[in-house]
Nucleic acid binder design. Structure first.
Lengths: 343, 343
DNA sequence: CTGAAAGCGCTTACAG
DNA sequence: CTGAAAGCGCTTACAG
């Protein structure tokens, strides 16, 4: 633990040039009130001395560190990594940094991450909450510490914050309507954890489409907590083993679930889409290359990331903390592929 | 741009309790030299006053900000997002933050990112360089500023830094040997940009396997710059249109390339693996579900991320800056699937 | 346009 | 165990 040699500071430059540190600071921060000649000299000397601003000191003094904290369940999931990539594209151009944390779907870890970010005095926290149920005092804390907050995708509805969400209900309703139009009559639903609003909304979309088309709502066709490939495969085995099995499955939780369905159907010799229609959610890259390719819903994740970034810079960065929070809803797009095209 | 209300500082707590700020600081930092009773009182009061340490001030004073900067070509690519997820797992437990930047494969942007991180006084920079050719003065700058540097995967070989790499040559050689053992005789190579060492090494592995098995090295079977799905598909069309086409293609650049090969072969009615063997690189999730499934090479990206994190904490965090850098090589694993199994 | 000074909020040697 | 003081490196009102 040693510091072999000090970094150059503005005082070193000031001393060398026999001027005040404040002038050096002004020259470096490109302030107008400084003689162009001295300014040039200062910049030249700074470069020669290999000067790099100490951002920690600058941040402390200015009370802002131009940093946005991001908390997601998992970084290495197509949807979230695309969101982050999109955000980075925006923040990079604004000279902001992104600090990334993953909750691993655990509430306690999410609380930890949020506290760490509050501690860092980030300018804004962008979060999509973990699946594990838990309170949201930690998010209230963010607001209490006067840090801006954007929730996206999986949001705590009752908390009044900026939100960037997908219209899950509408997208799901469209997907199920599409299945009905293709002639499917007994459509099963694979549900995600109902403590997350996104999964409740998707279920709602499923129900409303059935109602709209006058189809019965059958409890036995709705499977709880089928939100991994494995759990979905298990649920599918049960569904397809019924006396009166479904003729379509809407894997509302993810494409991974849809893949589980497809694999089980293939194993059981059930032909897709003829005997069984399958629709997933998220438009993961692989849905295009399975056989048959899988119908799914694209959430525009990369551009959603950009939307989040732009929202911060355009509406929040310099605005009053107490402005009415904005809610932006992005309409996902149904991508029809072979797994649901009977006609 | 307003600060509605000040945050609680240690001075606020000190004033309230009529003690010195230094005692508050000591109590909060869990120092031993403080009366347990006062300490308890301080902690209680701090909690009541909603105190959060100002990390900017602490960092400035301590001269370290417990942050690691990461620069990768793209965040939203399975390989890199896994590396980051693995690193985060380690840094989270150590209370370090991760700042993430993406170069988008552009050299100038990479230089920008690195400079921003130097400015932030991060403790360490972890980088995998962009494909676009360019110098490496920016990496030398990192060292000049006494910031620790770890290169991974795509490294600048001549720069003496810590490195975490895959043994690309050996893995490629094994893959090609496997093809030869399966009876393939005319094995084509899809190459990546040769300014990146990883692609040179993979080519070297291909060549050495051919030599070892006494097979001729044929220029017409080696395709430069076939490192996206589209470029690979194009190269494949050329290869398969030859009078004497290859009977196997090693897509050394990525599984996306291998997918391009598979799609073209399928379109042309060429059966895989019977008429054409295909091997990819990286073990992207989709390789398991194509038909046929694709033989590929797993790089253990998540655990590689952990290795990078551990390397920093175990060898670099508190060590002298001028210790001999360590180079860790991880042996990737050949995953044999249907696309290469003729027997 | 320039300088002297205060202060951002913390930590830590120093003295007691 | 506790307090007073200095200082991390910068920025910015204030005075000239």
């Amino acid at each position: 633990m040693k510091t072999p040699q000090k970094r150059t500071t503005i005082y070193d430059i000031a001393k060398k040039l026999n001027i005040a540190a404040s002038s050096v600071s002004r020259a470096l921060s490109n302030s107008s009130k400084v003689n162009p000649a001295t300014k040039a000299l200062i910049l030249k000397t700074a470069a020669e001395m290999n000067y790099q601003q100490n951002v920690m000191a600058s941040n402390l003094r200015k009370g802002s560190n131009r940093t946005i904290g991001v908390v997601v369940p998992r970084i290495n999931q197509g949807y979230f990594s695309n969101i982050i990539a999109g955000m980075e594209d925006i923040t990079y151009n604004k000279g902001y940094n992104l600090i990334i944390c993953q909750s691993n779907e655990l509430h306690a870890r999410e609380v930890d991450c949020v506290n760490a970010l509050i501690n860092q005095h980030v300018n804004c926290i962008v979060i999509s909450i973990a699946a594990e149920p838990g309170g949201h005092e930690h998010l209230q804390q963010v607001l209490d510490h006067r840090i801006r907050l954007i929730q996206f995708d999986r949001v705590v509805d009752e908390l009044e914050t900026f939100k960037v969400i997908n219209d899950n209900e509408r997208a799901s309703s469209e997907a199920v309507s599409h299945l009905i139009q293709q002639g499917y009559q007994r459509i099963a639903l694979l549900e995600g954890p109902q403590n997350l609003d996104i999964f409740r909304q998707r279920k709602e979309g499923y129900l409303s489409a059935l109602r709209k088309h006058g189809l019965p709502i059958l409890e036995e066709l709705m499977c709880e907590n089928a939100w991994t490939k494995e759990l979905s495969a298990e649920a599918t085995r049960k569904l397809l083993g019924m006396k009166n099995p479904p003729d379509a499955i809407f894997a509302s939780t993810s494409d991974f679930s849809a893949l589980g369905v497809l694999e089980v159907a293939t194993q059981m010799g059930i032909s897709v889409p003829e005997q069984l229609g399958i629709c997933g959610y998220s438009n993961e890259p692989f849905t295009e290359i399975t056989s048959p390719s899988i119908t799914t819903i694209d959430q525009y994740s990369f551009s959603m990331g950009k939307t989040i970034g732009n929202l911060f810079f355009q509406e929040m960065e310099v605005a009053d903390l107490h402005i009415e929070p904005k809610i932006m809803s992005i309409k996902p797009k149904l991508i029809v592929r072979k797994s649901t095209q009977r006609s």
